[in-house]
């Protein structure tokens, strides 16, 4: 092959390569353009607004205020209350919902009659939207006419105020949220359980392991990755709490169910204080990012070891 031939082939290869890159970008372009406009740009403006005193009614005279909004956040009782409520919601719901979901998955994974029925039953609340469930449970929780107090009354427990009491409202929302969501994570756990090789259980059996020991040394380690995934999704979902308080309590009574995203919504849309609301949104985003980064770290360490 002469030198010229090689040069020719190289050129052909090069043009082929650049053509591939061109087509590739053609395929990618719509998604990249849309993501840039409707995701990256808003993220950027959120950070920018958070450093200004942008007020919707006077959008033109906004000025740069540095970290003033962030300083204001940490002395704002209303924000701190919403933040605390959201953390409380997350701290309770994450372990409880995970345990409930795992328990349901283990039960349904057993060799039982009517498996499909039970699985469908536990999953059925997931089929309803959070709005439907929130409205339905508001009626169930109704202090004087609701079904729950009727049932409690039948077994001799006095009437409970549920959503109308600052002490019970958040817990009432938590119970409902677990009821609505656990079936979803049950399905993911179930897939995880079915991936644990049967021979591990058999080996444990030969070693004379009890049911509890099998759970501790075979089931739990086998579910590590799935649990991590579920842990992260429930945590992030918990920090996004909005629909339940918005529909059931409007953040009340006495702000006891006000959540982080609800506070951002009210500050931005009701008070039109975009700058301040953006700084809250930045805090919210950072929390979500930190949770996600922890997950990546743990997951990659898993893979490394």
């Amino acid at each position: 092959m002469g030198c010229e031939e090689i040069m020719k082939q190289k050129k052909l290869l090069k043009s082929h390569k650049s053509q591939e890159a061109f087509t590739g970008y053609l395929f990618l372009a719509p998604a990249l353009v849309l993501l840039s406009i409707f995701l990256l740009y808003p993220i950027g403006t959120m950070f920018y607004y958070s450093l200004t005193d942008f007020y919707i009614l006077s959008p033109d005279d906004r000025s740069f205020v540095g970290f003033e909004n962030f300083i204001r956040i940490f002395s704002d009782a209303q924000f701190l209350n919403a933040f605390g409520n959201t953390v409380y919601f997350a701290v309770i719901i994450v372990p409880v919902q995970m345990s409930v979901a795992l328990g349901l998955a283990i039960l349904v994974n057993k060799n039982i009659k009517g498996r499909t029925f039970f699985r469908t039953a536990f999953f059925s609340p997931v089929v309803m939207s959070l709005v439907v469930v929130s409205i339905l449970w508001t009626f169930l929780y109704n202090p004087s006419e609701g079904l729950f107090n009727e049932i409690l009354g039948a077994v001799g427990i006095p009437e409970q105020p549920f959503l109308t009491s600052p002490d019970q409202a958040m817990n009432s929302i938590i119970v409902m949220s677990i009821w609505q969501g656990a079936g979803f994570q049950m399905l993911i756990f179930l897939a995880g359980l079915q991936n644990i090789p049967e021979h591990l259980y058999e080996a444990a059996e030969i070693d004379g392991a009890s049911m509890w020991q099998k759970f501790l040394h075979v089931t739990l380690p086998g579910l590590k990755n799935v649990s991590l995934f579920i842990f992260i999704t429930i945590t992030i979902a918990a920090f996004k709490l909005l629909v339940q308080p918005m529909i059931m309590t409007q953040g009340g009574p006495l702000g006891s169910t006000q959540s982080l995203v609800y506070e951002i919504y009210e500050t931005g849309f009701n008070y039109r204080d975009v700058g301040y609301a953006s700084s809250m949104a930045v805090v919210f985003t950072l929390i979500v990012l930190i949770v996600a980064i922890i997950q990546r770290k743990v997951a990659s360490e898993e893979r490394g070891s």
């Binding site: 995701l39 808003p42 403006t45 607004y49 996004k240 849309f269 975009v274 953006s278 919210f284 979500v288």
Partner: peptide, 21 residues
């Protein structure tokens, strides 16, 4: 990397600037 990063940002983060846009 950008696409994976945007996977994490929830819509609840940006609904306000997105609304203004």
């Amino acid at each position: 990397g950008i696409i994976i990063a945007t996977l994490i940002i929830p819509p609840e983060s940006i609904f306000l600037p997105l609304y203004l846009l």
